[in-house]
Simulated scan of single mutants.
Amino acid sequence: MAFFGKMSRCGCIATMKSFIVRVTREPLVHFALIGLAIFLIFDLMDDTPPDVGTTDIIVSIQTADRLAENFERVWRRAPNAEEMDGLIDNFVREEVLVREALALGLDRNDTVIRNRLRQKMEFLASAAVGASVPTDDVLGAYYAENKDDFFVEGSLALVQVFLGPSPDDASTQAIMQALEKGQDPGTLGVRTLMPSSLPLSARATVDNTFGRGFYQSLLAIEVGIWSEPLRSGYGYHLVHIDQKQPGYVPELTTVKAAVQRQWLESQAEILEQAYFQKVLEQYNIVRPDQTVMAQP
């Protein structure tokens, strides 16, 4: 009977573990945990100035520890007793001046302060998303909907002969005939600081080298033959495409980390907007009459 009792307990434990695994994979559970985390973050990181009406400035153990941690992060060592007193004195000075500034209303209509407070609220509303880990199914579905964001552009390798800004037909034909006979391209054309060749390069590299739009003009050239004169931002070129590599959508496994980062960013935006809409419901917004504003 003891054996069967033990087996029963093991079965219950296994069932409970299975249930926990299934539940923790549910997106709704993730958002519930994220919501709880936001309240915890507010509680731990709340640095709202105290009521300016009080004259008590209490430097708590937590505040002192934070000051010491900030010091150690910069100087790679703990502060000594004299330095700790200086840190506390500086905190007290800051606290006194901040309270006096608040009492005078210096924070009102200050764009810098308002933007900083907005940034902190947006951070607090979305920071907890970092604790959420998407399942493979969730990540796969997100990737399927956003593949274009991870598209790897094509590239090509080329050799070019610069003809100058306004080449004449005779010299161009002579260079083309020399190339057909196998003459070294590096010995032909007008001397320039532009490279005579590029290894496999993406659009940005080619356009940065020869001018915007040059990469697009190369796509129509067949591999292995010299082109007709092509215009770039600097003049005209004869171009030989050595190799083309088409663009492609990579497998999820090769870009999983990047996809997960973008998924987290998207979830942070969703959570931030949801938080804002919830808070917005508490306010009555009165907008100005635009017809009145338009009057001179």
Rank of each mutant, 00 (worst) to 15 (best):
T291A: 15
S197T: 12
G186A: 13
D56P: 02
I175M: 03
V161C: 06
S132C: 09
E281H: 09
P167R: 04
L36F: 07
T172G: 09
Q282C: 04
G130S: 13
R231F: 00
K256E: 14
V23H: 10
S201T: 05
D65N: 13
E269G: 10
T187Y: 00
A157I: 08
N80H: 10
T55W: 00
L200F: 08
G213K: 11
Q160H: 15
V152D: 02
F276H: 12
S166W: 00
E269A: 15
D148Q: 14
A32F: 12
T24G: 00
G189I: 03
G35T: 03
R261L: 06
D148N: 13
L44N: 08
D137Q: 15
Q282F: 08
Q173H: 11
G140C: 05
Y234F: 15
A220L: 02
T192M: 04
I61D: 08
L218Y: 07
S155D: 03
Q119Y: 08
T48A: 11
V159K: 14
V259T: 06
Y283L: 13
F42M: 09
P134N: 08
I221N: 10
A202I: 12
T291S: 15
V59S: 03
T63K: 14
A170E: 14
G154L: 01
W263S: 07
S217H: 09
Q262K: 15
G211T: 05
H30F: 05
K6R: 14
N115D: 11
V92D: 05
Q62I: 05
R231D: 01
D168K: 07
I270F: 14
I13G: 06
L188C: 08
L33F: 10
D89N: 07
P167C: 07
D136N: 08
Y283D: 13
R73L: 11
D136L: 03
N146H: 15
L67I: 07
P185R: 02
S18W: 08
F42P: 00
L28R: 15
A220D: 14
T15N: 10
G5A: 10
F42A: 06
A257I: 08
I61F: 07
G164E: 05
D89S: 08
A128E: 06
R116L: 02
A257E: 12
G105I: 02
T111L: 13
A2N: 11
K278V: 00
Y234I: 00
D137F: 14
I88G: 03
M176D: 09
G130A: 11
I41L: 13
P199G: 02
L238F: 04
L97G: 02
F150Y: 14
S8D: 09
